[in-house]
Design a protein around this nucleic acid. Structure first.
Lengths: 341, 341
DNA sequence: AGTGGTCGCTAAACTGATTTAGCAGAGCAT
DNA sequence: ATGCTCTGCTAAATCAGTTTAGCGACCACT
C-alpha cells in the first residue's frame, strides 16, 4: 500500500530547498520569511510529485493523528447506528479527520482490547457511544484525553450528546391533543426496568415524563397504560389486543417506539379496525418501518445523524459541559386524525 | 490522549539493557542470543511501566499499521451495513487489526478524499464495499496495495466477496416446490434495470436465474411475474393488488426482497386473505422485519456478518482469485404452507 | 569601521520504534 | 601466544516528518 510515495525530502530536493523550507511552505506557516518564489517552487514540486505527507511520521512528532476513535457497545451493528456513524463521518470529514471504529459488544475483555488498540494508535479523542440511550460507566483508560459520550451520560459529568426525549414526549402528547384527543388516550410500552434504571434506559423515563407533563398541563389523564417487557412488535401486538378487549376503546394510542406501534397495527388490522379513522397512533424513533406502514406512522425521529455530528463537533471544537440535547423532530403522517364520532 | 506513556527507551533503561534488546525481547525475535535473565528483566520492566508500543512510530519503520480501510459507497449507514461491519470488526480483532471506516456516499469527490485519507494513514489494505451487490469500477488509487471487494465485483478480477444469490433463488423456489406449489407460483419484483445492468445490481439477475432454473428443472413455469420500479413496500403492495385482481389467484408468491414482501402482506391483509392459508410468501434478505411480520416471513438471509468476516480474511490471509460466494441460508418461517384445497 | 537588524534560508535535533552491523569477552584449539 | 568461534549485548542508522536554533548576506546607522 502506498509504496513509492514521494517524501518531503523528495519535494525539497526538487524545489532546490531544504526539508525545513518545504515543510513550512506546505504547512502554510506564518512568519517564515521564505520568498514568494520559494513558495512557488515548493508547491510546484509537491504537485508534480503528487506529494502527500505520511501522517504516521507527522503524528510521531506532533502527537496528532487527525483520527477519532468511535467506540460503541453494540451500536455499529444495529440499524440505529447508521445515522450516528454517518453524522460522525460527515463532521469528521469536514474537519479533516477520520474515524477508527470498534465495537465492544458489551464485553469487558473486548472493550479493554478495543480501547488499547485505539490508544496505541494515538487517536486524538474518543467518542463512546451506546445503542440504547442510557447512563454508563466510562472505562478509566480513555479519560487521559478528550472524550464525548454519544447517546449516553455518565456520573463523571463528561460532555455528552443525547436525544431530547422529554420534549419528544411532550410533542407526541401535544400532537394528539391538537387533533382533539383527550380522555381516550392509551399508552403502550410502560416498562419498570427501563423507566427505573438509568443504566438500562434514559429514554423511557424521559418520554414518559414528557407525555405526562403535556397531558397534565391540558388536564388530561391517560385512559390506560400497558406494560411491556420489551419494546418489540410482538409486545405491541399483545398490548393492543389487551386494549381492544377492554370495555372502552381508546381513540388514540401512544407507543413508546415504532416497533411496538408496528405490532399495534397488526392487532388493529386483525381486529378490522382502521388507523386513523378508528384509532390514531403515534410513536417514537422514526424507524424506517414507520414510513412503510399503511397508513404511514406519525412518530418523533431519533436524530441520529445530528447526534453523531454533534459528538464530533463537541470533541474537536470543545463545548459546553452540560448535556447537549438534540431535538427529535415530529414526523406528522397519516396515522393521526380527530377521534371518531 | 495517551500522554505520559512509557516508551521503549524507558523500558530498556529500567531493565538495564539497550533499546535493541528490549525491542527484540518484546517482539519475541528468534535467534537473538539474549539471556533468559534479560528476557525476564525486559518483561518485568514493560509490565511495571504498563508499556504499550507506539504504533505510529513502529509503522514508520515497518510500513505496517495493522489498520484496514473499510471504504463503502453508502453501506455504513444502512441497516444492511451493520452485519458487514460487525463481521469485519470481529475478524479484524482476531488478527489484531483495526478498521478505519469511511463512506463515499457515491460522490466522486468524497471518494477521492476518503481514499487519500486512508492512504495517508498507511493502511495495510482496503475493503471496498457496496451497498447493493453490483459490479463497480475501483478507483485506481487503491490498486497499489491489497484490495478486497465486498458485496461487489469489478472488471479487474480483484478478490471479492458476494452472497450466493443464484443458489438462494434455487432454494427459495425449491422450498415452494417442496410444499407442493407448482402451477400457481407468482413472482414479485422483476426489474429490467436491476436485471440488466450489473453496475446497478447483480442480485436481481442471479436470484431470477436461480428461481427459473429450479422451477425449470421441475417442469414448472411461473403463473405471473410483476415488474416493480423499486423494491420498496409500496411496490410490493401495488404488485400484490395487481395479482389479486387477476382471474386466477396464485397459491404462492416469491418476492425479490423482504420489503416487497412486507408490501405484499399489507395488500393481502386488506384483501382479507391469510398467509399462508390462502397464499404462501417467500422472499430474500432476512431484513429484521421478516421476523416481525405476522406470520413470520420465510426468506433467505443475506449473510452480512460472514461476508464482512470473509473480506478481512481474504485481505489479510490472501485467498483465491475467483469470487468468494457466501451461502444465503433459508429461514423457514410461518409464511409457507401447502396450497389451499 | 564596527554594530545591529532584517531577510531568506538550513543544519540538526527530535518523535519512538525496528534493524543492521559489529564489539567485547570467554572458551577452545593450535 | 595466537587465532577462531561463540555468546550476549549495543551503537547507530533508519523511517518521514516538525521544530529549534542559528548562519551568512546585505543594509542602515553611528
Amino acid at each position: 500500500m502506498g509504496r513509492n510515495r514521494a517524501t518531503l525530502a523528495d519535494v525539497a530536493r526538487r524545489a532546490g530547498l531544504s526539508k525545513t523550507a518545504a515543510s513550512m511552505v506546505l504547512n502554510g506557516r506564518e512568519g517564515t520569511r521564505l520568498s514568494a518564489e520559494a513558495h512557488q517552487r515548493v508547491f510546484a514540486a509537491a504537485e508534480e510529485l503528487g506529494y502527500r505527507p505520511n501522517l504516521a511520521a507527522r503524528s510521531l512528532r506532533t502527537r496528532k493523528t487527525a483520527t477519532i476513535a468511535f467506540v460503541s457497545d453494540i451500536v455499529a451493528t444495529t440499524r440505529f447506528a447508521g445515522g450516528l456513524i454517518r453524522g460522525a463521518l460527515d463532521a469528521a470529514r469536514e474537519r479533516d479527520h477520520v474515524l477508527l471504529i470498534t465495537e465492544t459488544q458489551g464485553d469487558a475483555t473486548f472493550e479493554q482490547y478495543a480501547i488499547e488498540a485505539m490508544l496505541d494508535r494515538q487517536v486524538d479523542g474518543v467518542i463512546y457511544a451506546a445503542m440504547a440511550t442510557r447512563r454508563l460507566t466510562v472505562p478509566p483508560a480513555i479519560l487521559g484525553g478528550p472524550v464525548v459520550l454519544l447517546n449516553a451520560t455518565s456520573a463523571d459529568g463528561l460532555p455528552c450528546v443525547l436525544p431530547d426525549d422529554d420534549r419528544a414526549g411532550r410533542s407526541v402528547a401535544t400532537a394528539l391533543l391538537e387533533h382533539g384527543h383527550r380522555d381516550a388516550i392509551a399508552l403502550i410500552g410502560r416498562n419498570r426496568l427501563k423507566e427505573g434504571d438509568p443504566e438500562v434506559s434514559l429514554a423511557a423515563r424521559a418520554r414518559l415524563r414528557g407525555i405526562q407533563q403535556a397531558l397534565g398541563d391540558a388536564g388530561v389523564s391517560l385512559l390506560a397504560e400497558c406494560f411491556c417487557t420489551e419494546w418489540l412488535p410482538e409486545h405491541g401486538y399483545a398490548a393492543m389486543r389487551g386494549l381492544l378487549s377492554r370495555p372502552s376503546r381508546p381513540s388514540a394510542v401512544i407507543c413508546m417506539n415504532d416497533r411496538l406501534a408496528f405490532g399495534a397495527y397488526q392487532a388493529l388490522g386483525e381486529a378490522g379496525l382502521s388507523v386513523p379513522d378508528d384509532i390514531s397512533v403515534i410513536s417514537f424513533d422514526d424507524d424506517p418501518i414507520a414510513a412503510w406502514l399503511r397508513p404511514s406512522l406519525a412518530t418523533t425521529a431519533l436524530p441520529h445523524e445530528q447526534m453523531g455530528r454533534r459528538a464530533v463537533e463537541l470533541l474537536l471544537d470543545g463545548g459546553a459541559a452540560e448535556p447537549s440535547l438534540v431535538a427529535m423532530p415530529l414526523r406528522r403522517r397519516r396515522s393521526l386524525a380527530p377521534p371518531a364520532g
